[in-house]
Amino acid sequence: MKKFILDLTVKSVEQLHERYVLIKLTDKHPLPEMLPGQFVEVQIEGSSTTFLRRPISINFVDREQNELWLLVATIGDGTRRLAQLKAGETLNCILPLGNGFSPIFKGEKVLLIGGGVGVAPLLYMGAKMKESGVEPTFLLGARSAKDLLMLDIFRRYGRVYVTTEDGSEGEKGFVTNHSLLQQECFDRISTCGPTPMMKAVARFARENGIDCEVSLENLMACGLGACLCCVEKTTEGNLCVCKDGPVFNIKKLLWQD
């Protein structure tokens, strides 16, 4: 896909949680085509310790409002600076980058599993599935109820099941402990979140013969495959997550249980 370098206008910044903000961006021209699972590289202005762009998953694309949504976890100087953006300011973005999730076909039963800020790309994935006539099922995990993000919006597009580690909402435990996995069969699983969670999901998928894709969150600097800092070992050799991913079928990965 063609890539663009755009100065997008900040429409709003919403504090969803003490660690998460939702940034909505727009442009005077229609936003370019973007696929679920792709990401953008954003330029950080005003941070003396941040020199490289930061990769942020595409959370949602609202074509009617011409908006791009970015769900940002404020974990360092760069992302904290993003959280301080104000409506009307501009954010320079390179987009869309990477390869997204595989297309979903009618009749498939698909489970989207997310944890933490890893839920971000699954919202757009679920919305595109619903648009194509396939209702997704979401299984979202967090430490506690207050850490669950955007549940009302996820529910617009499919069934939503929840786990929390402390049992404050949904079932207690991790996503791979949810009773849904024993009660229903799925043709495909797509997942994004902390690596231990994704490895557990991948193990479940392999044991049950379910096709599974994971969206990796390796450290990425350039977003174009030039700096090699995000390399992942695969059955095809070392591949750059930013250029050859971030979405990979688990059959390609050399993960060890």
Rank of each mutant, 00 (worst) to 15 (best):
L216G: 06
V72C: 01
E217I: 05
L216A: 10
N177M: 07
E45R: 15
V21W: 07
L52H: 15
G88L: 00
T49G: 04
V61T: 13
L181E: 04
L151W: 00
V72S: 06
P196C: 01
T176P: 01
I75F: 03
N218T: 15
E14G: 00
D257E: 15
A120N: 11
R203G: 09
E108S: 06
G116R: 02
F4M: 02
A142N: 02
S48W: 10
W255T: 10
L253E: 03
R188D: 00
Q65P: 07
V201K: 07
E165I: 01
T191G: 02
L31K: 10
F174Y: 14
L254N: 14
S168R: 10
R63A: 13
V72H: 04
D147G: 02
A205K: 08
Q183W: 04
S215Q: 15
C229F: 13
E213V: 10
E131A: 11
Q38G: 04
G223S: 10
T235N: 12
G118T: 07
R80E: 13
R159E: 14
E207P: 05
S12D: 14
G107W: 08
A221P: 05
H17S: 05
D257Q: 14
G46F: 03
I75T: 14
L123G: 06
E67M: 03
S12F: 01
N238W: 12
R53Q: 13
Q15G: 03
E232N: 10
M197K: 12
N208W: 05
L151S: 05
L71A: 05
T50H: 12
F154S: 10
L70K: 13
T191A: 07
L6Q: 11
K146V: 05
T49M: 07
H178A: 02
D211E: 13
E171G: 05
T176K: 08
N218D: 12
F51N: 15
R63L: 09
V72W: 02
M197I: 06
M34K: 13
T26C: 02
E184F: 01
T176G: 00
V134I: 14
A87E: 10
L70C: 01
K3V: 07
T26Y: 07
S47A: 13
F105T: 14
E217M: 04
C227Y: 11
I23Q: 09
N238D: 13
G225I: 09
L16F: 02
G37T: 15
K233Q: 12
E232H: 13
I113W: 02
N99C: 01
G116L: 02
V110Y: 07
K233E: 11
A205N: 08
E33S: 10
E41R: 15
K86W: 00
E184N: 14
N238M: 11
